[in-house]
Every structure is written in structure tokens, then in C-alpha cells.
């Protein structure tokens, strides 16, 4: 809490002004089940915040930070959602981020707190905040500090 007074009032006064005239940037939301290989993953990251104008002008420091973050995220294990998962009920049946059901074969990322999400969904979030969406646990503080303070 706190800091509310400092947050400058960029809030739209009438939120209807924000009526979406968005165009191309939907693709990330639309394909939560997209399959992809580990090594091409970075292609999918959009820069946190998602403002097009900022994306153009990243400083070198910011680029390094993003690269480190990607490196860190890739240390988190991925498995395929299996028929067993589906039957055991140990794994929830839907991804808390996109709210789509897990389908056998989906790539699932495990966080240290053992919460699971679609890789694409959770990676998109982890680029913004290294916390578990469900329990808010930091995603491995020790790994984080060793990576980000180098």
C-alpha cells in the first residue's frame, strides 16, 4: 500500500476513452496453448509495461536486465501436461492466468512454490514481476540476486 498520492493521475477519467482501438498486440493473449521450443522462447517476450513507444528506446542497461531476466526464467522447469496429470488431480485443470483448461501436451512451467501455469502465460508475467501469481512468493530470491546483481 502507500504511494497512491505519488501516482500521477494518468488514470483515464472516463475509462470509456480507453475503448479499445488496439490492433496488432492481441496475439499474445490469443494463443496460450502455443507450442514452442525452449530455445526460441525469447522471441515471445514483450517488454514489461507494453508501451510501444518505450520499446523502441531501451537503454543498454535495460536490455541487459531483460536478457538476465530471460536467463533466470529459463532455469525454471518445464514439463508437458500428461494424461496422468489430468487424472491425478494434483495439477489443477486450468491455468490461473489464461483460464483455459490444460490440455495433454501443453508445456507447463513449475515455479519453486509448485504452482503451475502455461509456459507462455507465466513467462509473460515473470518478465514483469518475479513473483508467483497465485501465492505472491518471490520466484527464488537467491537465484534472483545472483543473476541481477552481477
Amino acid at each position: 500500500m502507500g504511494n497512491c498520492l505519488k501516482s500521477t493521475s494518468t488514470d483515464d477519467l472516463t475509462l470509456l476513452n480507453g475503448r479499445s482501438n488496439d490492433s496488432a498486440r492481441e496475439s499474445i493473449d490469443q494463443e496460450p496453448n502455443l507450442q514452442f521450443q525452449d530455445h526460441i522462447q525469447p522471441n515471445f517476450y514483450s517488454v514489461a509495461g507494453g508501451s510501444n513507444t518505450v520499446q523502441q528506446s531501451l537503454t543498454e542497461d535495460e536490455q541487459i536486465k531483460i536478457a538476465k531476466r530471460i536467463g533466470l526464467i529459463q532455469h525454471l522447469p518445464i514439463t508437458q501436461y500428461t494424461d496422468e496429470n489430468f487424472q491425478s488431480k494434483k495439477v489443477p485443470s486450468e491455468c490461473d492466468i489464461c483460464m483455459n483448461d490444460f490440455v495433454v501436451g501443453d508445456s507447463i512451467r513449475y515455479l519453486p512454490c509448485m504452482h503451475q501455469y502455461h509456459v507462455l502465460c507465466v513467462d509473460n508475467w515473470l518478465m514483469r514481476s518475479l513473483t508467483c501469481p497465485s501465492c505472491c512468493e518471490p520466484v527464488d530470491a537467491s537465484l534472483l540476486s545472483s543473476f541481477e546483481n552481477v
Binding site: L16, G18, E26, G50
Partner: peptide, 14 residues
């Protein structure tokens, strides 16, 4: 009034 921004749920509703 509640508005879901373009990048919801990555960012909060307004």
C-alpha cells in the same frame, strides 16, 4: 466503472 486494459490480465483492471 471497470475497464480491462489491452494487456489484462498482465496489468490490473482500471
Amino acid at each position: 466503472e471497470l475497464f480491462l486494459p489491452e494487456d489484462y490480465p498482465m496489468s490490473a483492471p482500471k
